[in-house]
Design a protein around this nucleic acid. Structure first.
Lengths: 188, 188
DNA sequence: CGCGCGATTGAGTAATTTCAAATCTAGTGG
DNA sequence: CCACTAGATTTGAAATTACTCAATCGCGCG
């Protein structure tokens, strides 16, 4: 049933059947419907989520109710308000489903216990964190390079799958421009 | 001599004297003068640097020779073109000294060997990566919240030390606005 | 058919960039 | 102590870009 998850982990470290059973035991399965919130602003972020399927957006809603999308997450990605999760404080970001979504999730204390029980999982999480860090730095760079046009084209090239699953309003909130400005760019 | 470095590590994991000797043996000391490059675009990023003292900027220079500052790094920070370092490809970012800088540095292969020799160092690096990831996500958010004014005020509050050591031209390149626009903001 | 949502278009306004010139500051040598 | 220079900062003004608010278009669904 969770072959996908096992493959995901084994792309970084190898596991025996017994070890995989141990790993699995620390996770819980959940499902969410489109428009449901996996993390809600003002509430604790109990879980770190591995997306088995579906699509979510990690959002900051500012004082004037405008949404800013920090990241999309889909199949095989991990997502969460990590600031809130790791510090066990209330979430300032929301994680909302844009499609029906299946996840495996783990609490922070289970995460620590799992790393104790199976230290090599620490290497796995380190690699994931590394990936997240590099992706974030790349995004900072693309936001600084100012050219909205360029950012949009880069998105078209590198994440064309996203464009088919997400409204342009969401894309605009991700690129950091108004939906009208996005609409006036290059050949659709 | 390296008490500072030891304290830095021991703020996350504890080390015996012998262990600290092992750790140290994987690092090399270097010093750079103001305006020297610790990482140069087009060359491999051989080292990950721990800054003992000094100040550096991590920069992307775009096609029109405009500089975009991804991050500043100072005492007790780690910095490097991580994309290039971890993938062992040529750097697309430069790391330049804004002041004379003393570092401890480690190659990628030494990093791997160190983690094998002393697995708990993996937890240390994981924590550092976590810090970098959270900082990057915070920066993405502050770039999306658009208000340049707000970004500048946030910088004044949270990094007032930086303002005294860095020119406004650099600050502007970090905030993502022209130096003229920055100059026209709030009461200096 | 008509409703509702997303995308587009239009027009006026606000913010930012660009280029140029003026000002300021710190360090140097007379 | 003063003049001089180089670099950084500020100011000015025009041009560009993006935002906001409003209206319209397009399409799927009940």
């Amino acid at each position: 049933m969770d072959d996908k998850f096992r493959n995901h982990i084994e792309s970084i470290i190898s596991l025996t059947d017994e070890e995989y059973v141990i790993v699995s035991s620390y996770f819980k399965t959940k499902s969410f419907k489109k428009h449901q919130f996996m993390v809600t602003v003002g509430e604790p972020a109990f879980y770190n989520y591995y997306l088995v399927s579906g699509l979510t957006k990690l959002v900051y809603t500012d004082a004037s109710a405008k949404e800013h999308i920090i990241a999309f997450a889909m199949e095989d990605w991990w997502e969460c308000d990590y600031q809130a999760y790791f510090s066990q404080i209330k979430a300032t970001l929301s994680l909302e489903c844009l499609e029906d979504t299946e996840v495996l999730c783990i609490t922070l204390s289970n995460y620590h216990e799992l790393c104790n029980a199976l230290p090599k999982m620490e290497r796995f999480f380190l690699e994931k964190l590394k990936g997240g860090f590099l992706a974030s730095q790349g995004r900072i760079l693309s936001l600084l390079k100012t050219g909205v046009q360029e950012r949009y084209e880069q998105l078209i090239n590198e994440q064309s799958d996203l464009l088919q699953r997400v409204s342009k309003t969401q894309i605009a909130a991700y690129l950091g421009v108004s939906r009208e400005a996005l609409s006036r760019l290059s050949p659709k």
